[in-house]
Design a protein around this nucleic acid. Structure first.
Lengths: 294, 294
DNA sequence: TCATTTATCTGACTCTAGTCAGCCAAATGA
DNA sequence: TCATTTGGCTGACTAGAGTCAGATAAATGA
C-alpha cells in the first residue's frame, strides 16, 4: 500500500462526496429540510417505533421529537401510542406521507438510473459498486440461519452452482436434480446459513445433518464481489456455531487440494485431515473438526 | 436496467454516504467547523486567490470572507493584497496553518489506508474504486496536449504497450526501442493528447505529423477502468481538433478488423476506409478522414 | 404501594451555514 | 476624468441541526 493507492481511494472519496451532495440537494428541492426528509424516509423504510427511528438516525430525543411534530403538522405521519407499552410511540405514514415518500424514492431511483444509463458497461460498473459497498460495509454483514428453500438461499445456491459448473466445465443444475442433500440441511438435524448485507446475499454454507452427533459442511460459497474480506472464516465460524447449537460435536467436509486458500483456512481453523469418506470424483482432500463449547 | 440494478446503486450510495460522514466527523474532531476545515484544505491544495477559493468551494463572498477572518484569527493563514490587482487578495498558509493542513491530510490518508488495509485484495478494490470514480466524474475529464515525454504521457504509453503486448502475446517495449514514431508526435508537426481525471491518466492519443497536410493517428489508448463511458469518441474528437489547429487537413489510421467497436466508431465519426498504407503485420484495415473547420 | 426507570416531549439555548444589502477601494473604459 | 464595474468586506438576518435540563406519563420492581 503506497501513497498512490491512498490517492486513488481519496479521489474516490471526493467523487462520491460530490454525488452524495447532489442527491441531498435534489432532496432539498422538495422544500423540506434534510432532517425531516431523512425521518420521513426512515419511517417509509419501516422504522415505525420512535426508539428505533432514533437509533437508526442517531438523533437526540428532542430533535427527533421536534422533527416528528413537524411532519405531523404537514399531515405526513400519524403517531399513536404503542399498545404494548404506552410510553413508547408508533408512527406511520399517512396517505399523503406515503406519496411524499414515494417521490423521494423516485428521486433516488432516478439519480441511480442516470448513473447507470450513461455507462455502456453497466454490469461492470455495478460489480465495481458492489465490491466497494461490501468493502465499506463489511461490518454490517449478518449471518443467519434460513430455510434452504428461501429466496435468499436459492439465490446463493444458484450462484454457487453456476460458479461450480463454470469452474468444472460441467452442467451442475441443483434445481433440476432436486438435490436430496439439501433436505438434510434443515431443522432439526441440519441447517443452512446465509451471509447478507442488507438484502444482498454475499455467502452461504450448509450443515448437512442426519440426527447423529456428526454432520457435514456443504455448499460453502462466498460471492465473488465479497472476496478478500475474510468472510470465509466468519462463514465457517457461523456454521460451526449453528452446528454446535444443534448438539453436533463433529463436522467434516471435502475439498480439493488445488484450492490452496480454502485448505489453508481449514487447517488454520483447527480442521484436521482425515481419510476419504465419499467417492465423489472432484474432492481429493477431507477434513474433520471436533466442536466444543467455547 | 431493472429495479434490482437501481437498488445496487442505491446501496452503494448509502454505504459511501456513511463513509463520507465518518470522514467529516473525524475532521470535526479537530474542533473546527467543517466550513473552516474545507477552506483551510482548499488553501493547502493551492487555491490561494480568494476568487478561486470561492469558485472552488462554491461559497458566498460574505461567508468565505468570514471564514478567512476566522482562520486568520487562528493564525493559520495570512492574507495579502494581490500585487497585480490590489482589489483581489492572496491567502497563504502560515507555518501553523501548514501543520494543521497536514493533520487533515493525514486524517484522510489514514481513513483511506484503513479501508485498503482491511481488504486482502486491495488491487481489486482499488480498480473497483477507479471504475466508480471515473463513472461519477466523467464530466470532469479534461483533454490536453502534452509532451510525449512528460510523466503522464509516459504512464499512458507504458500502459498502452503493456496492454498491447499482452493482447498480441509479444514483447512490445516502447522505451527500449526508443520509438522513432514518438518524435513526430510533438510540436510543430504533431502532438500528443492525454485525457485525465485530476492526476489520473485515463487515455491518450498521438498525432504523428511530418509537416505535410496529412498526419496519422497513433497510440490511441483508453484506460481499462475508463471504458464504457464514450471516452474514445471524445478522445478522437480531441485529436482531430488538435490536428486541425496545426493545419492538418487529412488524418489516417490503421486498425484491426477484429476490433469491432473501434471500427464502428471510426465509421460513425466519418472515417472512410482506404487502401493499406503500411506493411505492419497487425493492422488489416485502414481509414482516412478529411478535416474541415466546424 | 411507591421509588425508580424508561420513553418521549418541551423550552431554552448554541453553533454553523448561508443569504442579502450596503460599503469601500481598486481597476476599467469611454 | 469620472461613472461603472469588479473584488472583497461587514452587519444584520434566517434557518437548520443539535444539546441539555427539566417535565410527564407509563412501566417496573422491591
Amino acid at each position: 500500500m503506497n501513497q498512490d493507492d491512498i490517492t486513488r481511494v481519496r479521489n474516490f472519496g471526493r467523487s462520491v462526496a460530490v454525488e452524495v451532495g447532489a442527491l441531498e440537494d435534489s432532496f432539498l428541492n422538495r422544500g423540506r429540510p434534510l432532517g425531516s426528509a431523512r425521518v420521513l424516509n426512515a419511517i417509509g423504510l419501516g422504522y415505525e417505533n420512535v426508539a428505533n427511528l432514533r437509533a437508526f438516525l442517531k438523533l437526540d430525543t428532542g430533535l427527533l421529537s421536534r422533527l416528528l411534530r413537524g411532519l405531523e403538522a404537514e399531515d405526513l405521519i400519524l403517531t399513536t401510542p404503542n399498545p404494548d407499552d404506552r410510553r413508547s410511540r408508533i408512527t406511520r405514514l399517512t396517505a399523503k406521507g406515503k406519496a411524499e415518500f414515494e417521490i423521494y424514492e423516485r428521486l433516488s431511483d432516478e439519480r441511480a438510473a442516470e448513473i447507470l444509463h450513461r455507462h455502456k458497461e453497466a454490469r461492470r460498473l455495478l460489480e465495481a459498486m458492489d465490491i466497494v459497498t461490501i468493502a465499506l460495509s463489511r461490518d454490517d454483514i449478518v449471518f443467519e440461519e434460513v430455510d434452504y428453500a428461501s429466496d435468499i438461499a436459492t439465490t446463493c445456491l444458484n450462484a454457487f452452482a453456476a460458479e461450480l459448473s463454470k469452474r468444472l466445465n460441467l452442467e451442475f443444475d441443483l434445481k433440476k436434480s432436486g438435490d436430496p442433500e439439501l433436505s438434510q440441511m434443515k431443522h432439526p438435524h441440519g441447517t443452512f446459513v446465509v451471509a447478507r448485507l442488507g438484502d444482498m446475499p454475499v455467502g452461504c454454507v450448509g450443515v448437512k445433518g442426519n440426527g447423529s452427533s456428526s454432520a457435514e459442511i456443504k455448499r460453502m460459497w462466498i460471492a465473488p464481489v465479497a472476496r478478500g474480506l475474510g468472510l470465509a472464516r466468519r462463514m465457517m465460524s457461523a456454521a460451526e456455531e449453528a452446528a454446535m447449537a444443534k448438539g453436533i460435536t463433529t463436522l467434516r467436509l471435502d475439498t480439493n487440494s488445488t484450492l490452496l486458500e480454502a485448505v489453508g483456512l481449514y487447517r488454520n481453523m483447527g480442521w484436521v485431515e482425515i481419510d476419504r469418506f465419499n467417492d465423489d470424483p472432484y474432492p481429493d482432500l477431507f477434513f474433520e473438526k471436533k466442536l466444543r463449547a467455547p
